[in-house]
Amino acid sequence: MKEESVKKLLTTLTAVFMIGFAMTPFLYMLFTSVNAKPDFLEAGWLFTLSHYRDVLGADSLHFLDYLKNSILVSAAASLVTVFIASISAFAITRLEMKGKLFVLFFVLAVSMFPQVSMIGYLFKIMTALGLINTYPALIMPYIAWILPLSLWILVSYFSQIPKELDKAAIIDGCNEWQVLFKVLFPVALPGIFSTLLLSFIFAFNEFIFALILTTDFNARTIPVGIALFEGLHGQIPWGQIMAASVVTVFPIMIMTLVFQRHIIGGLTKGAVKG
C-alpha cells in the first residue's frame, strides 16, 4: 500500500532527525573532551586523555569539589523535600481539612514565579545569617523551590491508592503516622521514588540561586562551576570544560535511560491532570 510506505519513510526520517537533534551535542562534547584541541573537525583528530587527567587530578580546578557540593546539596534538598511533600500530600488526600484546594493552587502558582524576583532579597537574608557560600544557603531555598512539584506528583500518586486500605488500617488500630508510613508509603513507593528522582534532577540543575548564593568551591555547584570555568592559562579550556561536562552528564544520562519510566511517569503526573 502506498500510504503505508510514505508513512514508514516519514516515521523513519523523523526518528533519525529526533535522535540526531537530541544526541549530536553530546557526541560533540565527547569528541572535544578526548581531542587535544577543539578544532579537530578541520585540523584532524589528536586523541588524548589529558583533559580528564586535569579535571580529575588538578585540585586547583576544583571540579571534584563542585561535583561533591552538587551531589550533597541535591541529595539533602530532595530527601527533605520528598519527606515534607509526602506528609503534606497525605494530609491533602486523606485528612479532612479546609482549604486543601487553596494550598494546591497556591503552591502551583508559587512554582511559576520567576526566581530573579527572589534572589536579591534571598542574598540579603543569607548575608545577614552569615550563610553565604554554605550548603544550608542552597539547601533551604532549594527545598522551597522543589516542594510544589513534589507535592503535585505525590498528591496524584496518593489519590490513586484506594481509601479502603487506610480504613482497614485504622480499624486495626493504626494512628495517622502509622497509616502514612506502614500503609501508604510501601504502596506508593514507586511514586515516591519517581518524586525523589525528579526532585534530585531539579536541584542538581538549579542555576540562578547557586550563582548568587555561592562564591567559591566551598559551596559552588557543578552547573555554576562549569559555566564559570576558567582555565589556568587564559584561553577558554574547551577540552577541560567538555571533560568535566562528560563526567557530570554521563551519570545523568545513564540514570535517565534506566529510570525513564519513573521520570516520565512523575513528570507527566506533576504537570498534566485529568
Binding site: 529526533m18 537530541a22 544526541m23 551535542p25 540543575n205 552547573p223 562549569i226 561536562s245 544520562m253 535517565t256
Partner: peptide
C-alpha cells in the same frame, strides 16, 4: 523516548556551554 528526555535532564548551564 529516553533519548528525547536526556536534553531535558541535563543542567541547562552545562548544555549551554556545549
Amino acid at each position: 523516548r529516553a533519548c528525547v528526555l536526556i536534553p531535558w535532564a541535563i543542567p541547562s548551564a552545562i548544555s549551554a556551554k556545549i
